[in-house]
Each structure stands twice: as C-alpha cells, then as structure tokens.
Design a protein around this nucleic acid. Sequence first.
DNA 1: AAAGCGTGGAT
DNA 2: TATCCAAGCTT
Length: 359
Amino acid sequence: MPSSAVLELRRSLLDWYHQFGRDLPWRRNRDPYAIWISEIMLQQTQVKTVIPYYERWLTLFPAIATLATAEQQQVLKAWQGLGYYARARNLHRAAKVIVEQHGATFPQDLAAVLNLPGIGRTTAGGILSAAFNQAVAILDGNVKRVLTRLAAIEVPPSKASKQLWELSENLLDPEQPRDFNQALMDLGATLCTPQNPACLICPWSTHCRAYQFNLQSELPMFETRAPIPHKLIGVAVIWNDEGQILIDRRRQEGLLGGLWEFPGGKVEPGETVEACIQREIQEELGIEVTVGDRLITVDHAYTHFRVTLNVHHCRHVSGAPQPIECDEVRWVTLAEIDQFPFPKANVQIIEALRQASNV
DNA sequence: AAAGCGTGGAT
DNA sequence: TATCCAAGCTT
C-alpha cells in the first residue's frame, strides 16, 4: 500500500501535467511504431532537433514493414545529422526482427521489447507506457534529475542508479502509467531544468528535499569526466580524369559506422599533412595519388575527442581503389553525392567543393 | 563496468 | 573558446 506522501506526489504531478503538459507530435497517437521511433530519436537528443526528423521519417517509412525492407543507405540518409548512427542501424535491424518474429506487429511483452536491438530499460518503459499504458518505469536524464533533487541524492546519478530506479518504480502511478511517465519527463524538461529550476511554481516543491535544503542548484552532482584528446587528420578529395571524386563507406562497427566519407587518417608525429594523406590513401585504398592544394580545414568535436581535418585536393595517379580498411569505395560526381549519407564534418567538405566549383 | 558513440544549443 | 548537456544503449 503506497504511503499518503506517494499518493500526494502522484496526484499533484498529474494535476500539473493535465494543465501544463507539452503537446508533442508523438503524443497525438498511440501507434507503438511511431512512439518507438520517437523514443529512439530522443535518446540524448533534444525535442526541438527530433521533431523534423520524426515527421520526415514517418513519411519515408510509414510502417514497420516499410522500414524492414528499406536499404540501409536510405535509413542512414534519413538519419543523417542526428548523430549516434547505431540508433538508425539498430532501428533497421529491429524492424526486421519484428517482421520475422512478431508478424510485423510491435511486441507488448517487456522481455521481447528489451530483446530488440537499441532498446534498453528506459526506452522499453517509455514505449510500453506510452503506447499500451503499461506500468513500466523509466529513468532518463529528466527523471534522474527530478528524482535526484526530490530525494536530495548527494552522489552523481551513476552511483545511485539502483536507488533511482526503485524511486521511479515506487512513484509510478499503476493506474495512469502513461500520463505519469510523460508528466515526470515534462517536469524535468520544463521546470526542474539543469540551470535555474523553477521551484516556485513546481508542484513538488513542498515535497522536494533539495528545495527544502536549498540544494536544487547543486544537484545532481557532476559525473567525473576524462579530458578529451585532439587529433590531426589528413583528408583527401581524390579526383580522376572523368571529374569524379573517390568516397568510401565506413565499416558497420564503431564511429559513424555505415556512413560514407572522404578517405584519410591520423597525422603521425613529425609527419606533414601531405605525407600523411599519401600514406593513408596507399594503406587504405591501395592507390597512388599526388597531393595538391588545401581545400578547407574543418574543426569538429565528437563526444570523446576533437579533430582538425586538413582537407586537400588530390589527383589519382595509379591503381584501382580497393576497400582495404572500409566496406566499399566509389567514384561519384558532385551531382550524385547527395544520395549518400555523410557525417556532418564531411558535409562541410562537400559544401566547400560546391562553392569551389560554383554548383 | 567504464568507455565508446554525434550533433546542436545554451551559457 | 570551453564546457555541459539533451527522452541512453552496447560492449
């Protein structure tokens, strides 16, 4: 039997949600497929960023079967710019699993949902509660922050995972799990924000231990983070006599897996950028090039390191390109290149090529 | 179990 | 410019 405090927390949060909850595209239907797509896109990604991708995705891939039969390149192209591309690859794989194992219908069983690639505990709870009103708890970034403050947990959230999950489960309203989970996320996104939380208008302020102790600005505590390295990269835009450019498709695993790129690699200590490019192209593609003028320098920050791409025009001299350290190589024209999914840093290179050639 | 995995926005 | 963080999952 839940305590009266828990009942009061549920009631006050749901009251607030019915007045101030957000109107979001994926809340307008209960189609588990559409909700699944939104949940995956929203992983580590802001609502504002997701909305146009979500709308476009449902036009391109309106049903699970459509997604399952699409080419991976189309899927990655639809994801281009969203980041964390394993999400798109896993979505594609999971769609095939659902077609093969669940008759193209999104499963309603928690264990089956958790078994799908790319779906963890939070995403499973988000889908099952939103689509089917199942009482499955969630613990995303918003909920972690709200609960950390509610209970004044004075260790970084990663050290309190078990406690936070238990809190989320105990608070969850078994009679209105859909609205409750959505409400908890909205509270974190709109009032219980990382900076300057709006405690004065928060429905939970009278129950919040952080507010009670004036700790709301100190919690949650920061996670410790390792400093990120900076890598210098030589990149080649290799031209042939037909005016085509050589691009390669990265391997499925790891950073930017399955995306296309301009070939290149890390500048070794004491090496010039030109020598690096010549060496990398020989090692990765088995061809000889001459390195010409610099096209552009691109600085880009990933999560775990930063890069400076030194991009040079190159001329193909000899040898047929081979996919030695990649999955595929291809000669393309500037007009064709938009069909291929590229990471953001490479899109900047394409834009520079367009400017240079006035297309 | 700590590290790897993108990008855009806010400060 | 540097840093943090946004509906986390996988290995």
